[in-house]
């Protein structure tokens, strides 16, 4: 029997209830998804069975430092995904802006943010994406930028479409943008996805629901911000990103 959305929804609900029961019994909040999350079927053979081995970082630990990037690593228009071809892409033009912070609230300056996304029809410019939605010759869907002194970033793009996938029968991913982020330490490395507010597919998506903590899930959803919309041009979304993990600064100044 094919796996249905109802099957997945039930598994998601069971895992969420188990998490909430653990919280009620005093367990700490869990911000990141469990690597072993059955409703996302591809995780079954790709998560370690053994617990992670704790490393007590000291100032000489290589992972408390990290790669650096600079103006040679980006071009001036990399942050504008609507200007990478001779014509304009189809879709709803948007800006996504926010700040990159560490857990102490300090801005992460001059670091690389990369993003990639499907086009407005929900299709990636990737050979293996065979979703029968049109490719857009004026949209690739890849952007890069360096954060400013206040940790700020801004991208101009089009709103990606939802798309089907094969986790279960009639499975659809809510519209999302993939983000890749570097902090001052390799331990802070983050790859994640940003969502758009009010998407009816949230409840049915095992990837978003793999974050079982409600407040943590909300942190993946951008806010529509009318102040960021530009008259007769684009709609504005705001999304701040907080990097986890110790850094050299964290060791010097103590835990935030």
């Amino acid at each position: 029997m094919p796996l249905t959305q109802r099957d997945i929804d039930r598994e998601v609900a069971e895992l969420r209830e188990a998490y909430e029961a653990s919280r009620a019994a005093g367990a700490p909040a869990v911000h990141h998804p469990a690597r072993d999350y059955a409703p996302y079927r591809s995780s079954a053979l790709r998560h370690p069975h053994r617990p992670l081995v704790p490393v007590e970082p000291d100032p000489e630990t290589v992972e408390l430092h990290g790669p650096v990037f600079g103006p040679t690593d980006v071009t001036d228009i990399d942050h504008d995904l609507t200007r990478q071809h001779t014509g304009e892409p189809l879709g709803e033009r948007i800006t996504v802006s926010g700040r990159l912070l560490d857990r102490a609230g300090r801005p992460v300056r001059g670091q690389l943010i990369e993003l990639w996304q499907a086009n407005a029809s929900g299709r990636y410019a990737h050979l293996r994406d065979q979703h029968p939605a049109p490719l857009d010759p004026n949209f690739t869907g890849v952007g890069r930028t360096l954060t400013g002194d206040d940790g700020s970033y801004s991208f101009t793009t089009v709103k990606p479409g939802a798309y089907p996938w094969r986790n279960h029968e009639n499975a659809w991913r809510p519209a999302h943008i993939h983000f890749s982020l570097f902090g001052t330490a390799f331990t802070q490395r983050l790859v994640t996805q940003m969502y758009f507010p009010g998407d009816p597919l949230f409840a049915h998506d095992p990837i978003l629901q793999s974050v079982t903590d409600e407040r943590a899930r909300q942190a993946l959803v951008a806010a529509y911000d009318h102040e960021l919309s530009r008259s007769e041009w684009s709609l504005g979304y705001r999304w701040d990103i907080v990097l986890d993990g110790p850094s050299a600064t964290w060791i010097e100044e103590g835990r935030p």
Partner: peptide, 28 residues
């Protein structure tokens, strides 16, 4: 962030959760 420093005496900010890199990062 506006203060340019951490929320001293309060909880650290909650980190943005991780997600899978997915199947289509290859062109990005």
């Amino acid at each position: 962030a506006a203060d340019g420093q951490g929320p001293h005496g309060s909880e650290p900010l909650q980190p943005t959760p991780s997600h899978t890199v997915g199947p289509f990062y290859g062109y990005a």
